[in-house]
Amino acid sequence: METVYLIVLGLLLIAGLLSIWRAGIGPTRFDRILAVNTFTSKSILFISVYLFATGHPEYLDIALLYALVNYVTSLALVNYLNRNPVSAND
């Protein structure tokens, strides 16, 4: 069972690295925003799987909190983009 958790965590880390790559390189700012969103959902999975792996599922509140509050960043972002509709060729 532990090897499964190990594989899952490792792959999640790699996926996280990919989204950081896109966040860093992303030509337009929308790619960076997309990368942030995907990194957040990967980290929610990572925390949940890690807590399951170490046998303490009662601390899942953190993952629940992230799932809840994650939209606030995107909302503030979309608000910022609507307020400044400069074309996307930053």
Binding site: A23, T40, S43, I47
Partner: peptide
């Protein structure tokens, strides 16, 4: 600045994990 803020968002998520 925009990508700085986004990257610092990712930074704080990675730190929390």
């Amino acid at each position: 600045p925009l990508s700085l803020v986004l990257l610092s968002g990712i930074y704080s998520i990675a730190l929390c994990t």
